[in-house]
Amino acid sequence: MNYQFLLETFFVALSGVPIALLVTVVALLIALPLGFLLALTRINKIPVIHHLAKIYVSFVRGTPIIIQIFIIYSSIPLLLKIIFEKYHIAFDIYKINPIWYAFIVFAFSSTAILIEVFRSALSTIEKGQLEAAHSVGLTTFQAYTRIIIPQALVVALPNICTATVNLIKATSLGYAMSLPEITLKAKVAANVGYNYVEAYLDIFIVYLILCSTVEYLFKRYEKYLSKYKVANA
């Protein structure tokens, strides 16, 4: 065991954290509202859209994320190439920063996961809550923002936490898109002297710290949000 390398590479791995977090945050910013809206289409059985949403969810849940990455990472350049050639746009598609692909891939998969999370959370809220809101003169929009969503959020939070942790973990697959995140950075450092054991130990520790911190923060927030439920317990 090369302890000197172990220590140095820990900071190399740590320097990949901002990229991993950036990808996670951007993916969630897209996936949370989109997932919620699509969950509403599923609950209210909006024609066509809710069937498409169902197929979309089934695809994402049914295929490994690495294969989703392969597909998106190899199809988007193809599509862009065709479009750019058709309109004679001079643009080198191989110069696109891989982080854009990462945003698309992880937003794509997180949205599907969150549709299911919100769908099951919304289905636990009684219809009477909406009726009561209507009966005191709230509009449907007000009823959702003030009554339904705050309640559904508390129900959904543990699952949103799991989805977030899984998302952070999934960014480790960014290597397939040459995304310089935690895993890739440490691995590259290890390539020089074949110090793979040390490098992966470092990566392991960084994810452990990162994910347990995120879990802790979610737990704190959950406690804060569900004060009306704690009273019951």
């Binding site: 973990k169 697959l173 793979y196 054991v197 992966y200 392991f204 994810y207 994910c211 879990e215």
Partner: peptide, 12 residues
């Protein structure tokens, strides 16, 4: 285990 990506565990 929950906090470790599969690929990291695999290489470890």
């Amino acid at each position: 285990m929950r906090c470790t990506p599969s690929i990291v565990l695999l290489f470890l």
